[in-house]
Amino acid sequence: MPIDAAKALAAEPRTGELSWDHKDVQLYHLGIGAGVPASDPDELRYTLESRLHVLPSFATVAGAGSPGVISGLSMPGVDVDLARVLHGGQSLRIHRPIPARGRARATGRIAAVYDKGKAAVLVMRTEVADDGPLWTNDAQIYVRGEGGWGGDRGPSTRLDPPSREPDRVVERHVREDQALLYRLSGDWNPLHADPEFAKRAGFDRPILHGLCTYGMTLKAVVGTLLDGDVTRVRSYATRFAGVVYPGETLRIRMWRLDGEVRVAVSAVERDDAPVLADTVVEHT
């Protein structure tokens, strides 16, 4: 079995130094669609260095070379074909607002391995700190064809959306070159750029990074329901329920609840095919 759960869980954590500055933050924001319209004051908070706010989802790319999804696939006990890998979900907890310039230490390890029958799920946890904790990232890595060894199936995180109509619905267009721009923040998986690789992975053409949709969605929530205040976000979790192709339109439905926003995202052009599900933004 290419995945040895016991060996993966027992492996020593990997550590690395991270650094970033305003250029990295601005590039990330542009990669998730910020800057349209270019002179809009709400957009300048994400694109102009003199008034820069850091969207918390920047934590998923900060430092570019930090432990993450690709790093998790090279941990002891893990030997899989990248073409069989999908990003199944992501959760992020923010301990302090992220500065526009920083240095920190990242510690990454495989926190769980689940047997889903026809697939395995690896939970790659990255904890980042400078003088104290900054953020904790959990990436759920879905590996097709690697389950079935009789291991723990893991918890169920499915959430039924509220039964009432959404409080807000917004649409966000994904540019044709969105994946090419987003990957410059450090996710070089060829699935998002190389048509031949995408076909080998079972897709007609390259797909958008799930974490790009993740960032676009959080930006919409912050701008629509959190008064544009990025510091109000405490945690953000989602399950990647379907793919997005560059050029499509995201329909983002939002429900206000006590201390959180529930979100569902779909692809407009494919009859509202689900994209993000079980999505929760906790806030102050």
Rank of each mutant, 00 (worst) to 15 (best):
L276E: 00
E176A: 14
S66C: 11
Y182D: 02
A38R: 12
G151E: 03
R93M: 09
G65F: 14
R14H: 13
R105D: 04
V128F: 08
I32W: 04
Y245S: 12
T60H: 12
E43Y: 13
G210T: 03
C212H: 03
V261C: 10
V121S: 03
G215W: 02
E171A: 08
T249M: 11
S91A: 09
L184A: 04
R251V: 13
S91C: 07
K7R: 15
A198I: 07
L226M: 14
A34R: 04
I70E: 01
S266N: 06
F197D: 00
G117Y: 06
D272T: 01
R101P: 01
S156Y: 01
V222L: 06
L257I: 00
A119D: 00
G147R: 03
G102L: 11
T15Y: 08
S66I: 06
F58C: 10
K118Y: 00
A6Y: 02
V128N: 01
I110A: 08
D152R: 07
R153E: 14
R144D: 01
T107R: 15
D258Q: 05
F240W: 06
S235T: 10
P13H: 09
H22E: 15
G65M: 08
A8T: 08
M75D: 07
R101Y: 04
R239P: 00
V268P: 02
D272M: 04
G148Q: 11
V61N: 07
A10K: 12
V230C: 12
E12K: 15
V281F: 14
D177N: 15
A220I: 02
P37T: 05
K199F: 12
P166Q: 09
M75V: 13
P166I: 12
A34C: 14
L191E: 01
G102F: 03
C212G: 02
R205Q: 10
K219P: 04
R205W: 11
V80P: 06
V78S: 05
M254D: 03
A264T: 06
L226C: 11
V263A: 12
S39L: 12
K199V: 11
T136Y: 13
L191N: 00
N137F: 05
E196P: 06
A237T: 10
G16T: 11
Y245N: 04
K7P: 08
G88N: 06
D81K: 09
Y46M: 13
L226A: 06
Y182E: 01
G247N: 04
M254K: 07
V222R: 01
I94W: 12
G154P: 14
V281N: 01
L208F: 00
A111W: 01
